[in-house]
């Protein structure tokens, strides 16, 4: 309402947030784990955008990646396996003013949480979703994951994984209302930061698959790509990523890809080698569920209680004699 204070007074008063303001507990991930790179990029984003920590929520399910909320200084919800997205949707619906981030792993998202994932894409609610995809279950000490390559020997597939892996990018791009799909790799931090930044600014469900290394259980999985820049395809466009000249000097394998081009995005998504990195698809005009179904009233504990009681009253069974003699009415 009335804002009698000039904005400049506020700015002069308020301290700027530094990276340390977003640091929660000390991370317990293994050294060399790609989760660290994602954490650093998200903390940088929060600092660059000067997001008040109390305005951020980090939601996760179960897995190494899902320890993410503990390491951020903001609101966090380390939830149940596969259910990070419904929780995040509920938060966004009730508190559209909060910045919602979701960290989920290849098991959490692509196995037990697949149903929620598909429908969250369709709901297209404004949140930044990072799929930490190391292609193995690390928390349970090397079990096969839906994204494990065929033939990968794990504790649960000693004779090698039997099935072709699931491709999270093609799945996402195949769902109605998909509005932002990108792929990042943990070993190119500059691009990871740029992609997360674009995802954050996109109004809608921003899905980033981050290919990340698991130094403990799959130390060599991405070695060929880490060592040979030619095996990475950078997607560049004036509406997408614009890598720095120095990075372009190293990563010369580039394709000008318009993120509005869904057909080409689907083609690129299905390529495994070279690994595409960048924004595959973006559509700012997709409807968002929180806008389609906004609520203009606040749910106080009293109104919730009232509504529940009104609902439960529907099941009240009136005693046959009008309640005058309760004892006889009971069975």
């Amino acid at each position: 309402m009335t804002d009698p204070i000039p904005q400049c007074v506020f700015r002069a008063e308020d301290e700027r947030y530094t990276l340390a303001d977003y640091q929660g507990e000390e991370p317990r991930w293994c050294t060399g784990c790609g989760d660290n790179a994602i954490l650093a990029a998200v903390q940088r984003l929060c600092r660059d955008e000067q997001l008040p920590p109390e305005r951020t929520v980090f939601v996760s399910g179960i897995g190494c990646s899902s320890r993410f909320p503990h390491y951020m200084n903001g609101y966090g919800f380390h939830g149940i396996h596969g259910r990070s997205l419904p929780v995040a949707e509920g938060i966004k619906m009730a508190r559209p003013d909060l910045h919602v981030f979701v960290s989920t792993g290849d098991g959490d998202c692509c196995s037990i949480g697949t149903a929620h994932w598909i429908h969250a894409i369709r709901y297209n609610m404004d949140m930044t979703v990072m799929l930490h995809d190391n292609r193995v279950y690390g928390l349970t000490k090397m079990q096969v994951s839906p994204t494990s390559p065929q033939g990968l020997q794990t504790k649960t597939t000693p004779r090698g994984a039997y099935l072709e892996p699931l491709n999270p990018l093609t799945v996402t791009l195949g769902v109605a209302n998909a509005s932002f799909v990108a792929q990042a790799v943990d070993w190119i931090p500059e691009l990871m930061h740029d992609i997360i930044e674009s995802a954050f600014h996109h109004k809608g469900f921003s899905f980033i698959r981050v290919l990340q290394r698991c130094p403990e259980f799959l130390p060599d999985m991405f070695e060929p790509w880490v060592q040979d820049p030619a095996k990475t395809l950078l997607l560049v466009h004036e509406d997408g990523l614009q890598p720095s000249p120095s990075l372009s000097k190293t990563y010369k394998n580039q394709e000008a890809h318009d993120p509005a081009d869904l057909t080409r995005a689907r083609e690129i998504a299905s390529v495994e080698d070279p690994i595409p990195v960048g924004i595959l698809y973006r559509n700012d005009d997709m409807p968002r569920y929180e806008e389609i179904r906004p609520t203009d009233r606040s749910y106080t504990p009293d109104t919730i209680k009232g509504a529940l009681e009104a609902e439960l009253d529907k099941f009240t069974i009136a005693p046959a004699n009008g309640g005058e003699d309760e004892d006889t009415a009971k069975p």
């Binding site: 050294t31 790609g34 660290n36 790179a37 650093a40 190119i188 931090p189 130094p215």
Partner: peptide, 12 residues
């Protein structure tokens, strides 16, 4: 530095 992935190996 710009290529560092914050993996903690060296700081450890």
């Amino acid at each position: 530095t710009p290529r560092c992935t914050t993996c903690d190996e060296c700081t450890e």
